[in-house]
Design a protein around this nucleic acid. Structure first.
Ligand SMILES: [Mn+2]
Ligand SMILES: [Mn+2]
Ligand SMILES: [Zn+2]
Ligand SMILES: [Zn+2]
Lengths: 143, 143
DNA sequence: GAGTGAATGCAAAAGCTTCTCATCTATTGG
DNA sequence: CCAATAGATGAGAAGCTTTTGCATTCACTC
């Protein structure tokens, strides 16, 4: 199954690559750091080096299988590329990440780029805030 | 002049702080890294340690004098806080940074946050692309 | 199944940023 | 103007995330 995607990317089908792709497909949290992936694999009994995790994620990104984001925390997070673009809103208290798409915003960006004489290659929009979810730590701790 | 802003921030008026603030106010490029600041100060004959530059910029940010951004490059960039929020569009070829404000986008973000049950604290929108400026390296090199 | 180029793991190193600590300084009020 | 002191500085060490070098191992092809 994921073997084909890996092969299509011009990469050899190896245990680390298959396991990492599987993990990205099944992880309850879509947005994970390299360290997260490394630890989850360890916890699952897979002995895969952190350097390999970084290398594989980078290759997956180059192949378009994965997307990398820089939520302001000092490290990168990766997610499986679902094909459809979306932006993110993140709870600064509990870290919960929600995805959204807003065609109005997308369109305005195209207009702005045009007006300023830029040919857009990509963009990143991240909203930070506190989520009002009852399960969020915001509520439990009342801050 | 900037002495008052520094004092208002609850900080002592020292040479490094005054020089850094001056530099941010007069630099031709508004968006600079800590390293940039350090090097520009050195070039201007000011012997200010890099650690101090980082400390002061962090303090200025906490005081609201300065804003910090994470354009996807692995390092932070700082700019003087002009008081009015704006977003950025960056040329991936020449690095030129333009600022813009779009009230439609701002409003849509507020609506999205509301719908998803978030109370916005801030956001960051960065558009990446190639600028079509004749002076940009894009043109000079034709890529 | 052998041969070969690619992939892996480990440790070292590389960026960027923060911290430690001894020394120095701005501020205050006498 | 000076002394006292809380705060600031500089240099280097340390911290984190990410990348790299290299010897070893492995996947794919014939
Ligand atoms: Mn996502
Ligand atoms: Mn700006
Ligand atoms: Zn978008
Ligand atoms: Zn904005």
């Amino acid at each position: 199954m994921e073997d084909q995607e890996i092969r299509k990317a011009g990469l050899k089908v190896t245990v680390p690559r298959v396991k990492i792709l599987e993990l990205l497909e099944t992880s309850p949290e879509r947005h994970v750091s390299a360290e997260d992936v490394y630890k989850m694999l360890l916890a699952a009994g897979e002995e895969i080096g952190l350097a390999t995790v970084y290398r594989v994620l980078t290759q997956f990104e180059a192949a378009g299988l994965v997307e990398k984001h820089h939520f302001e925390d000092g490290y990168s997070v990766f997610e499986l590329n679902k094909g459809k673009h979306h932006d993110h809103i993140i709870c600064v208290t509990c870290g919960r990440v929600e995805e959204f798409v807003d065609e109005t915003i997308e369109k305005r960006q195209r207009i702005i780029a045009e007006e300023l004489g830029f040919q857009i290659s990509e963009h990143e929009l991240v909203i930070y805030g506190k989520c009002l979810d009852k399960n969020c730590d915001c509520k439990k701790r009342g801050d």
